[in-house]
Amino acid sequence: MNKIIITGSTHSLSKEMNIFELIDQEPSLLSVFSRLNIRLPFGDMSIADMCQRDGYSADLFLILCSMHINPSYRPATSDLRAEMLPEVIGYLRASHHYYASHMLPHASAHLEEILEHADNRSRNVLRRFYDDYTHYIVDHFQEEEEHIFAVVDSAANRHDANFSIIDAPHTDIDDRTNDIASLVIKSLPEAVPTALRCAMLRHVYALRDDLRRHSNIETYLLRPLVELYLKSREI
């Protein structure tokens, strides 16, 4: 796979593309670099050069960038190889860590600022709602790591992966993330300053969009790769 054209987007990604050009066109891709633990600087490197330097599959890098830029992009089965699985799991683990240690606490800090302007009753119920929401997400991450990511852990010696734990929680998480935004927009007491509401909303919507991309990667990239990987071990 040398080139990916992303439908509905002006971007056309190829291994020959200069890294600077790529980031300049789509700065949000920096999160892909950091989750793959790819180090800067790049000088005038191409995607292929950078992947070779850091020991990553350039094909996989292009797939991850494409899924990041275009939420409806789906990798073709013929482009997937079982060897990509450990890198994808590394990427997803890094994303879990980023949500748990950065995005969720950051949203919590915004919420606490808001709650300073709310009465006791609203404060308690909102704080409980947000705490349940974060626990639900973190527990879900842990479950995925134990029941799906562990297939590549030779010590675990797993021969199957339970994907039923993915689908319903992803819809629930998306619903609850949207609910936070709806409550902030519609139902918080009037005393809460607009600037604080907007700061919280910007963060919640960024979190929602990132979680949706994450969910797409798990459904349309992780799942077929795990199936390929388990099949390759049967032979």
Binding site: S122, V125, L126, F129, D175, R176, D179, S182, K186, S187
Partner: peptide, 22 residues
């Protein structure tokens, strides 16, 4: 009408709008 889907979210909505006591 509320834009809220989850039961937990609807519960918060009910409390914030004084439909139910926490």
């Amino acid at each position: 009408k509320t834009g809220i889907r989850s039961v937990a979210g609807l519960t918060v909505y009910a409390v914030l709008n004084n439909l139910i006591d926490s």
